[in-house]
């Protein structure tokens, strides 16, 4: 039971995604901080991570290697302003809310999995 819980694909995927979400928050924080910096280009989680992670989830095989989520310049960022900066404040704020909601959801899921385990051990809910 314990073995199967901790190697459950959804559980391991949530852990990876929680780290990525925390990293993404840093990326968004950097973007918002630099909203007035001329020539600044918006950053986000690396594409290679997102693609590898999606592939892993689709295959359901947690042994598929996923590179750690790193922050890099976002190639899909929208048009840049006259000062060469391409950060759009409203988009960043939206992304931040969505990101922290995602983090909350993942936390609930991980928490729920652990509670289940605790219930199996003690025979009652915490």
């Amino acid at each position: 039971m314990i073995e199967s819980l901790f190697s459950n694909p959804s559980y391991t995927a949530s852990k990876v995604l929680m780290d990525a979400t925390a990293e993404r928050h840093e990326a968004i924080a950097t973007n918002i901080a630099n909203v007035e910096t001329p020539g600044y280009k918006r950053v986000d989680i690396s594409k290679s991570f997102t693609e590898a992670f999606e592939a892993q989830v689709k295959s359901g095989d947690s042994s598929v290697a996923v590179p750690p989520a790193t922050i890099e310049e976002d190639p899909d960022a929208g048009t840049q302003r006259q000062d060469g900066n391409n950060v759009q404040m409203d988009k960043e704020l939206m992304a931040m809310s969505a990101n922290s909601l995602q983090y909350d959801t993942l936390t609930e899921f991980v928490s729920g999995s652990l509670k289940q385990l605790q219930m199996a051990i003690t025979g009652r809910s915490a």
């Binding site: 928050h25 918002i32 901080a33 922290s100 983090y103 936390t107 991980v110 928490s111 652990l114 915490a126």
Partner: peptide, 26 residues
């Protein structure tokens, strides 16, 4: 002042996330 507020919102959000992480298992 708007940019200042946006940055404060970032801090608030980060704190919420950290608090939420501390509730794991409770």
């Amino acid at each position: 002042s708007r940019a200042y507020e946006a940055n404060l919102a970032v801090i608030r959000n980060a704190r919420q996330m950290a608090t939420k992480a501390l509730t794991i298992g409770h």
